[in-house]
Design a protein around this nucleic acid. Sequence first.
DNA 1: AGTAGTGGAAAGTGCTGCTGTCTATATTTA
DNA 2: TAAATATAGACAGCAGCACTTTCCACTACT
Lengths: 211, 211
Amino acid sequence: MRISELSRRTGVSIPTIKFYLREELLPPGSPKARNQAEYGERHLRRIWLIRTFTTVGGLDLSSVRKLIQVIEDESLPLAALYRILDRTMARPPLEPPCPDSVTQAQDQVGRLMEQLGWRPLDDSGGATTLVQVLAALRTLGCESDLAFLLPYAQAAEALAQAELDLLAGDDGEPDRGAAVVRGVLLDVASAALRRMAHEQQVLVRLPDAAG
Amino acid sequence: MRISELSRRTGVSIPTIKFYLREELLPPGSPKARNQAEYGERHLRRIWLIRTFTTVGGLDLSSVRKLIQVIEDESLPLAALYRILDRTMARPPLEPPCPDSVTQAQDQVGRLMEQLGWRPLDDSGGATTLVQVLAALRTLGCESDLAFLLPYAQAAEALAQAELDLLAGDDGEPDRGAAVVRGVLLDVASAALRRMAHEQQVLVRLPDAAG
DNA sequence: AGTAGTGGAAAGTGCTGCTGTCTATATTTA
DNA sequence: TAAATATAGACAGCAGCACTTTCCACTACT
């Protein structure tokens, strides 16, 4: 397959494919002549992967690069793969906009995790983000009891469990690519479902919202 | 309060505050002289709001502008406010990377919503995103039974219910600002919780993931 | 009187993710 | 065989975004 076919079948322009090649997000094709290279199914899949991560997953190219690396590096244990995946997905803001409320929020998160029976993990992107959210809620005067987050968190746990069950399902060598793809896409899917549920509730409670 | 105090108390640089003023994200202070204006608590709160939406909520300034508008426009009914909020938070990719699998994915989403007893909503950003996620999963060969999404979606519904209960709680005039802030921040919080649950499951299933 | 701070306008910056242009070849079509 | 089209590879250019810098004419504290 030549570059034009790769472009046609993926819907990605030739200059963009060349850009991905330059950036080594896409491995070079096998050269057939000074100005001719052969691309295969692998390249096709790789471009789908890149576009899915960027357009659906909303990741930037440096994150995509990191995820491709952890997929390819077979010597990296699955646990490490997931650690990197979790860190890549969670991008806590570097500078908390309201540093004052942060310690209180840390307590809140600690208590929540205790109630859930979750082990504290230092350097968890999700926890850091949650802390900043609670701090922001306090600063902006929208604080409230967080008890209603508990059942949601438990459902999230069950979802994560189901996700990891899928991995164990393909026994033999687990498919690292599928693990990462599901990690990224189930994150997007759960966010989308959350918003759909929100829309539905709005529809039920404020019926003039039809449309 | 003068601009330097506004800057000190928010941690936002004076040039950035001037930029927000120019962009009319921040209303002008009341002028005291040709080169002197007075800023108040309202400006302080507004800057916190902008920074929270951008750094914690991950929104761009055009989204922030839209959200500020819907907060301020008291004539806009709550239902419409939430519609705009939901559309602003959900940013489905304009060009689906895998248009082939889309119709099948639409069916899947339709069935899922039926099982949940959710009313179809045309032009729902969340549904569009979910469709593209499922299409991408299929294209990349990671498809699977989606039954495990059901209880999660129900928990998301309960969460949305709790969120709207908070609004009704402040009866009298509902606080439009709080509604939008909670809409944005609970979205971020739920994503963070989802990822924390994921981390915990990884920890349980792949115990060498400690750290 | 002198230094620092202010509002306002305009231009510049750094980053990201492409996009366009060029040349020397190679392949396809007439 | 000739003309048209396609390709690899190198490099420069560009659009959008969120600021940041620089300038100015003033004003306020000391």
